[in-house]
């Protein structure tokens, strides 16, 4: 068994003149949560469709769990779970019947199926409402049920297209915990697309950034931040006067210094000792309460990548 869950080689898909996926080469290790980030229309959903063998590529190849997406798509779908662009729930049916259907599709034995349905519905807080038609539910409840459906048969690989969209913060956090523990406990690989960069930063072992079908960057969130983001310092306090900022900006190691929401954010050209900068501020009359060193967030890295590509 290979250690790579997904491998694509120059994967390409055109729709007429539009290159939805353009020469995508990617290797996603098994057992991690992989975040696929990109703006709307960047090719994320098309990539998932190609990986599930639902669309045929215009060029290149892809292997999922060791199977060729063009010739062994059924093997891939047998071992995968998916929450796609839409929740895909049958709204006339009850929550229980929706899961029952997918349990039958995957030939889960009756007793195991019933236990698993109970376990998942209880876990997402929907067990008491299992007999209700899904059509009457809120978007968040449907999303929780759809995620439960994708995990029902304990797949080796789960594709999740915007899984936390429509969930309240508590439910989104619970789902993130579930996904992380699923990857850790069952060795499942999770391929998720999201617009929520903070979520990707917290959850993903690796992220890939795509724009107009092209992969711009791939790696651990920390690697991307280190690669793209210069070091910075965030200083909490009072009295950051114009004079103090001017003094700060005059220092050679300082690239920029701005006050945002009462916090002084100092972008540095390189890793540097902050003590002289703090002394300078205090000398100019500022009261410093807290100093944090860090790098640009994944969101800033993402926006920078988008700007560079433009």
């Amino acid at each position: 068994m290979t250690d790579v869950a997904i491998r694509t080689e120059n994967l390409t898909r055109h729709f007429g003149a539009v290159r939805a996926v353009d020469g995508l080469s990617l290797a996603v290790p098994r057992g991690i949560v992989f975040g696929f980030l990109g703006p709307n229309g960047s090719g994320k959903t098309t990539t998932i469709r190609l990986l599930l063998g639902l669309l045929e590529p215009t060029g290149g190849r892809a292997f999922v769990l060791g199977y060729d997406t063009q010739t062994q798509a059924n093997e891939i779908r047998q071992r995968s779970g998916a929450l796609l662009e839409h929740s895909g729930l049958y709204e006339r049916l009850s929550a229980e019947d929706n899961l029952e259907l997918y349990g039958r599709i995957w030939h889960i034995p009756k007793a195991e199926r019933q236990a698993r349905i109970r376990e998942l519905l209880t876990h997402v807080g929907l067990w008491e409402r299992r007999k209700e038609s899904v059509g009457q539910w809120s978007r968040g409840m449907k999303q929780k049920l759809a995620v439960a459906r994708a995990l029902l048969h304990r797949p080796s690989l789960v594709f999740l297209d915007e899984p936390t969209a429509g969930l309240d913060p508590v439910a989104a956090a619970a789902l993130r915990d579930d996904l992380a523990s699923l990857a850790a406990r069952e060795g499942a690989t999770i391929f998720l697309t999201t617009h929520n960069l903070a979520e990707a930063e917290r959850l993903c072992g690796q992220v890939g950034v795509i724009r107009q079908g092209k992969l711009l960057a791939v790696g651990h969130p920390d690697e991307l931040r280190a690669r793209s983001g210069a070091p910075r310092a965030e200083i909490v306090g009072r009295g950051f006067s114009r004079e103090a900022l001017a003094l700060l900006r005059a220092r050679p190691e300082v690239a920029a210094a701005e006050v945002h929401n009462g916090r002084l954010v100092v972008d540095l050209r390189q890793e540097t000792n902050l003590a002289p900068l703090i002394s300078l501020l205090v000398g100019a009359g500022a009261a410093v309460e807290e100093v944090r060193k860090g790098r640009a967030s994944l969101e800033e890295v993402f926006l920078t990548l988008m700007e560079e590509e433009k």
Binding site: N74, A82, L83, L84, E85, G88, Y90, I105, W106, F159
Partner: peptide, 14 residues
């Protein structure tokens, strides 16, 4: 129309 087809097609069913 009800956006359930793609999820059904993404299953193991032939």
């Amino acid at each position: 129309e009800r956006h359930t087809l793609e999820t059904l097609l993404a299953t193991r069913l032939s």
